[in-house]
Design a protein around this nucleic acid. Structure first.
Length: 582
DNA sequence: TCGGAAAGCGCC
DNA sequence: AAAGGGCGCTTTCCGA
């Protein structure tokens, strides 16, 4: 099998960068296509490199002159090579400079260090060094001076040497096209993460406060909000216990037992099984309490400023390649508060969601044509019903989720034989990934991101991750992890490609390089949630943005899977409030 | 008094 | 409604 279409596209500049394909002024043979940046104190060194890696020129710049210099050089759309996007890009954005492509060396290093397809490379076998350390925190005026004095940059910090090592690792790998696409996707993701934080998600402080007041009562200066207190009073009355304490799981269970209720845990799901008049108000209390503590007024004060929610995203923060977030809980925004996400006047949101992304990804990576056929429908689960594989949509949904997650009980367990019969290649694929995990082997995504080493391997990279360590000691549990890894991880790769393609298209919709306006004056990404994107757009461009979203989804499918007959359907909604999208 | 672990629940 | 892989965040608990 080939690496998809990625090897076949001809383009003056590599398409694997998610940058413009036909730059103004086609590069001459000696034009630099990469510019590597490094910094020592206030001096920035910029090294211009040919595609071959040959050094063309070297400049030393004062750090304060960097942004205008980059703006000027950006006309040729070089790839900016730097250690951490999160270190360099925020200050450029603040100076009004948007770049089209980069190589985030640390994110790429992390992938290559572990990639099974590049295991023979010098990079993979080198001792751990500075590039294996976590990213240096972005400079902040209060801490940077101190940190830099205490921790001098590691000696192997040279971005040019590292870039060459990475290029060798990719070129010598079993799947150079796929790995190159993965690294390009990871890097463009880092650009998007910085841009989304810079732009912020439009958030109405006023509407959020109204929502909280409706549900909880007015903000109290001390103690519980009035409506929470009232619900708690109903719980206490039903238990005939004025001392009942709902906020500690231990106390909650004890309190219920004192009243003769056979509770063994404080989990909502378990409480729901019980029949007692106190249960309904108690569940209601827990719901309100969660909202109050996680996304209440304190959250609003801390995270929403000047009408924008600016969380910090962590590209590649999850072992599977999904993003994580660091503060603000951007990836867990409860539906309850999404009504506070309101577009600016004259602007709107274009909200797009990849429909049944993981099942479609499974059809593609396993080459299961029957499953791919079901995916010709906009609604893949309905397509599975129409093909006769199962009788109802819920059967299709839980059957598929069971296949992907390794479920054995309930409806998903019951559906397993039928799914196996209808989609044998897909099931064989995930079963093989699970067995490999149980044996302690490494598995890899379609583009080549490899799972952490399995059981029995004396490898300490993730030793600090308690959850992974626990899972690793449970063969079946680790098998479920690797089974899910190949699907979730490849879905994350599709999403990166979708986002990278969209980013380039949005820039064009906004006028391309000809329009000398800043990022937030054009349609721009403001939110990303695994398989969902939100674009904040001037109303008059919403149709073009919708088209760009669909074209990007199709392009992502082609980039990963070439001509494979798998459709990646998305739903698109143009709304001025996020909660209206679904 | 502080910090890590566990419980619980939000998102996909 | 079901099953359950991946996370982050808040609160409580408990021991150093």
């Amino acid at each position: 099998m080939s690496g998809g279409l990625t090897e076949n596209i001809t383009c003056p500049v590599s398409p694997l960068t998610f940058g413009p394909c036909a730059p103004v002024g086609r590069p001459r043979q000696t034009d630099p296509v990469h510019i590597a940046l490094s910094r020592a104190a206030s001096v920035v060194t910029a090294v211009e490199l040919e595609e071959s890696g040959h050094e063309l020129a070297r400049h030393e710049l004062d750090a304060r002159a960097l942004a205008p210099w980059i703006r000027e050089r950006e006309a040729d759309h070089p790839r900016w090579v730097w250690n951490d996007t999160a270190h360099w890009y925020p200050s450029l954005l603040a100076a009004g400079v948007r770049i089209s492509r980069c190589v985030d060396l640390r994110l790429c290093h992390r992938i290559l260090r572990r990639a099974a397809s590049a295991a023979a490379s010098e990079l993979a076998s080198a001792p751990r060094g500075g590039w294996d350390s976590p990213a240096r925190p972005p400079e902040s005026p209060t801490t940077s001076a101190m940190l830099f004095e205490l921790e001098p940059p590691p000696v192997d910090d040279d971005p040019v040497a590292e870039w060459r090592r990475q290029r060798e690792a990719v070129e010598g790998s079993a799947r150079p096209g796929r790995l190159a696409l993965l690294l390009a996707g990871e890097s463009v993701g880092a650009l998007v993460a910085a841009e989304m934080r810079f732009a912020g998600l439009p958030w109405s402080h006023e509407r959020h406060d109204e929502l909280l007041t409706e549900l909880l009562g007015p903000r109290p200066t001390v103690g519980r909000p009035a409506k929470m207190e009232a619900v708690l009073a109903r719980v206490r009355a039903a238990l005939d216990d004025q001392e009942f304490s709902p906020d500690s799981p231990v106390e909650l269970v004890k309190g219920l037992q004192r009243a003769g209720v056979r509770a063994t845990s404080a989990r909502s799901g378990d409480l729901k099984q019980l029949t007692h008049p106190a249960i309904a108000p108690l569940l209601e209390y827990k719901k309100l309490s969660r909202l109050h503590s996680a996304n209440g007024w304190n959250w609003l004060d801390e995270w929403v400023r000047d009408g924008r929610f600016r969380p910090s995203y962590v590209p590649g923060g999850v072992v599977t390649g999904r993003w994580a977030s660091d503060g603000g809980g951007a990836l867990q925004l409860p539906r309850q508060v999404r009504g506070a996400v309101i577009a600016d006047p004259g602007w709107t949101f274009v909200v797009a969601d990849a429909a049944q992304l993981e099942p479609r990804v499974l059809a593609a990576i396993s080459g299961d044509t029957a499953m791919a056929r079901a995916g010709q429908s906009q609604d893949m689960y309905q397509g599975m019903v129409d093909s006769g594989a199962v009788e109802t949509r819920p059967q299709a949904k839980y059957g598929m989720l069971g296949a992907i997650y390794g479920g054995t009980t309930g409806e998903s367990g019951r559906m397993k034989p039928r799914i196996e019969r209808a989609f044998p290649r897909a099931m064989e694929y995930v079963e093989a990934a699970a067995r490999a995990g149980e044996r302690g082997e490494v598995v890899s995504t379609w583009l080549g991101r490899s799972s952490p080493p399995g059981r029995g391997d004396s490898y300490d990279e993730t030793a600090s991750d308690a959850q992974l360590m626990k899972l690793r000691n449970d063969a079946r549990g680790w098998g479920r992890f690797t089974r899910n890894f190949v699907v979730q991880g490849t879905a994350a790769e599709w999403a990166l490609c979708w986002m990278g393609s969209l980013r380039r298209r949005l820039w064009e919709v906004g006028g391309g390089d000809g329009a000398a306006t800043e990022l937030t004056a054009r349609p721009h990404l403001v939110f990303f949630l695994h398989d969902e994107l939100i674009v904040h757009s001037p109303i008059r461009l919403a149709v073009d943005v919708s088209t760009a979203l669909r074209d990007s989804a199709a392009e992502a499918g082609r980039l990963l899977f070439g001509a494979a007959p798998v459709e990646f359907a998305i739903t698109v909604a143009v709304v001025d409030r996020y909660d209206l999208a679904k």
